[in-house]
Design a protein around this nucleic acid. Structure first.
Length: 145
DNA sequence: GCCAACGTTGGC
DNA sequence: GCCAACGTTGGC
């Protein structure tokens, strides 16, 4: 069971927008980066990830679930790009800021820190658990299954 | 708003 | 297939 992280600029698509979408979920469209696409292709229904606000906020704000595996991106004419669908599971009680993540040596290996430009990225089990705890969530409550 | 880091494109 | 030029992302 892998964990993931999805970045979005809150102007364009915020956590609140995601929550309003409800259980049906939302296409994570618009990704035009091969690395990010390849990660989305690996995602399995039921897997969990974080929702991160980039630029403004710069914090992990919620937990999401993959509700549909990779399929063609409906906003893409070329047919080259794919995306998954995700739904909001739970907000972090306390957003975990990039500053906090950078300050914690146990999180120093996160892709978020190492490759700040990658918009869809993997998160390790330990990192997932750590950020849940920092965010005031009980890991077991937001884990899949 | 600036700019560093990164990815992509296209000329050779 | 190399690499310079360009575009984009995202932290600051």
């Amino acid at each position: 069971m892998a964990y993931w992280l999805f970045k979005s600029e809150p102007h364009k698509w915020s956590w609140d927008d995601q929550v309003k979408k409800g259980a049906s979920g939302q296409e994570w469209d618009g990704v035009r980066n091969y690395q990010a696409r390849n990660f989305m292709r690996q995602m399995k229904t039921g897997e969990r990830g974080f929702f991160y606000h980039s630029n403004e906020g710069k914090a992990v704000v919620g937990v999401v679930e993959i509700v549909a595996e990779a399929h063609p991106d409906s906003t893409d004419e070329s047919g080259k790009w794919e995306c998954v669908d995700i739904k909001a599971v739970a907000p972090l009680k306390e957003p975990v800021s990039l500053e906090t993540i950078k300050a914690d040596e146990r999180l120093a290996e996160m892709v978020l820190v190492k490759n700040s430009r990658l918009s869809v990225q993997p998160v390790s089990d330990d990192e997932f658990a750590m950020i849940c705890r920092l965010g005031g969530l009980v890991v077991e409550d937001v884990k899949a299954g």
